[in-house]
Every structure is written in structure tokens, then in C-alpha cells.
Design a protein around this nucleic acid. Sequence first.
RNA 1: CGGGAGGUAGUUCAGCCCGGUAGAAUACCUGGUUUGGGACCAGGGGGUCGCAGGUUCGAAUCCUGUCCUCCCGACCA
Length: 493
Amino acid sequence: MAKEITSRQQDYSQWYNDLVLKGGLADYSAVRGCMVIKPYGYALWENMRDQLDRMFKDTGHQNAYFPLFVPKSLFEAEEKNAEGFAKECAVVTHYRLKNDPSAKGKLIVDPEAKLEEELVVRPTSEAVIWNTYKDWIQSYRDLPILINQWANVVRWEMRTRLFLRTAEFLWQEGHTAHATKDEAMIETVKMLDVYAKFAEEFMALPVIKGVKTESERFAGAEDTYCIEALMQDGKALQAGTSHFLGQNFAKAFDVKFLNKENQQEYVWATSWGVSTRLIGALVMAHSDDDGLILPPKIAPLQVVIVPIFNKDAEAKKKIDETAGRLMRELKDIGVRVKYDDSDNSRPGWKFAEYEMKGVPVRIAIGARDIENNVAEVARRDTKEKQTVSLEGMAGYVGGLLNDIQQAIFEKAKAYRDAHITPANSWDEFEKILDEKGGFVSAHWDGSAETEDAIKEKTKATIRCIPLDNEQEEGKCILTGKPSRQRVLFARAY
RNA sequence: CGGGAGGUAGUUCAGCCCGGUAGAAUACCUGGUUUGGGACCAGGGGGUCGCAGGUUCGAAUCCUGUCCUCCCGACCA
């Protein structure tokens, strides 16, 4: 059994790596644990980023940028945060190289150029940002501060995976400061809602909003809210987090403000982030054996037009004209479309290629079609082909893109919903994890010890306590102690 | 950091056990025929066999060291 699971996991990893590599999203790089995001993958990220950015601005946030390097003394100011990240920090200790006296053409680190204080390459930016906010905040009139930054961070993980866990990754991190606890808590949940909306509406990725248990909480946070998604292999993936930081960072960095009553108070903080990991989530949630399946709303390319032509120049010209007209119509309604009339590859090759890249809609036009004033429209998600009249084609395709977006979401949601399974006994609990996978909804006595013990036995962790959770009396799945509600367990990435 | 598998042409890999001229497929270039689901023919270019030592007349192959990658585990918000 264990062997089967291991081999299944290996196959799944292989499937995933192939999707990313052959889909043209990314490559391995020469640097340990890092990856190269290729133009196609980056275009996808840009679409996601632009949409998120709009949503942040719609909720009153502004972008700014803070330094990559964090002096060690600043980094260690918030103890829990520092401790949580200490094991995975890249550290700059020197600022200069010099020629190696014993090997021509080689360089060595100049021992003379040792930094007085080491610089930590940010694994997250709370420390630099709160050290800055300290100078920005004096009065309640300076609050709230609602800032987001798009940046890269470095976390020196033992084991990396394309997009899901790389040593360096791109993300956004919002850092807000508020006058009251209530306001900060509202902000935390508001941004969680933004993430959930983005995941579901744009990535077609159904997510469960919830709160983390103490052991899964962000280092330095009072509460960590998250959106959890389910992958097709039955493992869960944390897709985004929003943290209520309380006054922990304010106290660590001495960020106080004078309230209306002329009293000094510590400010209340939140931080929230999503990363290029979302691309991994997208790949694993929707793709099939023929390649990627990208949701139309964020796909770099929504429609590809493939001409079917031979040496007949006259026929090719007609196809070009028809395709050109169709392209203009599609662009007019805001569709991202490409006409691939390259002579390097034949139609069959192109079909396979664009399927691998997950382009939602393919339109094939040949001389035969033009005689009949039609074209062949194929959708990537179901692989259905239809012959559609060229009259009103743009409108048809626009509608089809919406249908596909919806269909991908519904499919993922049906899978997810079918994989939230209640367990009422330990045997059942283990059996579901081993055989079916997905989320297991079970009672838990609320203690970190029990959570650890369950993890030890099954590798499953508590993904979250869903926000809209029903209260229900029950007994802990492991210890039998009383419990007031079920929580969601799963094996996770 | 432990276990396993690997590093040879742009890519995927064979060759290694048993040392003796560097291979295949694919991609690429030229010409031609093709084009409705990854075309075919002919010709051509391309590799410090991860790196460093050692053994040997001779090393991709054997030995030692070292670096890197992937998978599993540990670790990880």
C-alpha cells in the first residue's frame, strides 16, 4: 500500500513537472532550487498580477517598494517571526570579491570585505516595513496605512518544486497598519475575501476560507486566515494567507500613535500575500494528460487561429483575409488572439502544441471552410469540436470563453466537493486519507498535541477551520475527547 | 540532512558491467515533395562525456573526491 502511494506520488510529480516544462511555463535554472519563468509563464503571472493589483486598489491599497536586504538586528526584532524563518534564510556576509591569487581567472570572496552586520535576504518583509512605518506614524491621522508591494523573496527550502516551493519566488505582500483592533481584523478578512474571489472567479479555483490552528499559524501572527484548494491528486494546497498580526510588530518595532484622547497606543497590523505558487495550483487543479488547461480570464492567449493550407497561394490569401477579419472582430471584444500561420509546422503539430499550452479555444480555418463560410472551433477543456458559421463568430467565441471559464470552475468544484468526506472513526479517517484523499472533515479536541500525533500517524494536517463552520458536538477522532466542531484535515503540499 | 536514481549533441537518452576512432532519436540548417491531429526523402552542421585528481600505452567506461539535478523522506506559513 505504502509503496503504491509512493509510486502514485512519483507519477503525479512527473505529470506535474512535464506540464510545467512542456507547457512552456518555466525551466529549471542553474541555481539551486530556483527556476526560470519563461515568457509564457510570466505572461500568465502578469495577467494574475494585474487583476489582483486592480482588486487591491479597489480596496484602497497603494503599491510601494522596500529593500531586499534586512539587517540582522532588524530581522530578529520580532522574536517569533525571526525564529520561524531563521532556518531558511540566505545571508549576505561580504560585499566584494577579488582575484584568486592561487588560480588565475578565478575569484574568491575578499576576507577584507566582511560586513559588520550581516544582511538577511528577505524571506518576508515585515521587519523592514515595520521599521519604516515607525517613522511614518505619529498620530491617528496617519492611519490607516494600506500598502502592498510586488517583490521577490528568498526562502532556502530543503526541497523545492517548480512554482510550488522555489528558493526564490515572486509574490505580493500587503502590510497594513490600523488604529484599532477591529479595523485590523476587518482588513484581514477583507483581503482573504479578495483572494477567494480572485481564486474562484479568475483562476476557476474553488477554495475554502478558513483559519489556521496555532501550529500552522504564521510566525508572529495572532491569527492566520487562509484559502485552501484541492489538487487532482487529493492533496491540499494553501493558496493564500491573510494574517492578523495584533500588536506584535508594533511592539517589536515600537510603532505608536497618539489617539484622539492624546494617549500613546500601539498600532494594529495585518499582512497578506499570494505568490507564484498560485500558478502551481492552477496547473495541478485543471490540467489533463494532454497538457495545461488555463482559465480564459487569465490565459495569456485565449484563442489561437490555425490555418489549414497547402501551396495554393490564392487559397492561403483567402484564409489570411478571413482570419485577419476574425482577429479584428475578436480583438474588438477584448479577446487575446493569435493567428499562427507559420509554415514551420503542420496543423497537427500546432494543435498538439496549443493543447499542451492550454489555450482555451482553437479555431481552424481551411479552404473548404471558407467555401461554406464556417470554421472549426475546438475547446480545450472538453476537446469538443464544432463547425460554426463565420457570421457572428466573434460573439460565439466570446460566449464560449465564458462557458469554458464556468465549466472549468464547476468541474474543479464538483471534484473538490466530492472530496470533502466526513470521518467519524479513526479507521475511517485513515482509510479516507489513504484511498480517497482530499479533505477529511473530523472532530478534533483542539490541542496541538493531538494535531501533532495525527500528523505523525497519517501525514495529514489540519488545513483550516472553515469560517462558516457549523457548531456540532462530537468526539475527537483520535483521543475521543469532546469537540465542538469539525475541522478539515488533508495531506498537503 | 538521510535513502534512491541520474549528469554524454539544443532536448530525450543508449554506450559504462567486460577500457581501444563519440552514438541514436528528435530538434536545427540546405534542397525537394507535403499540409483537416505531432509529414516524408536526400544531404549537412553540432558534444572538453558535470568538474578535479588518480590508475593505465590508452578512460565516457575503473578508482577517489567534489558539484549539481530529479524522486522519496525529514524540513517548510
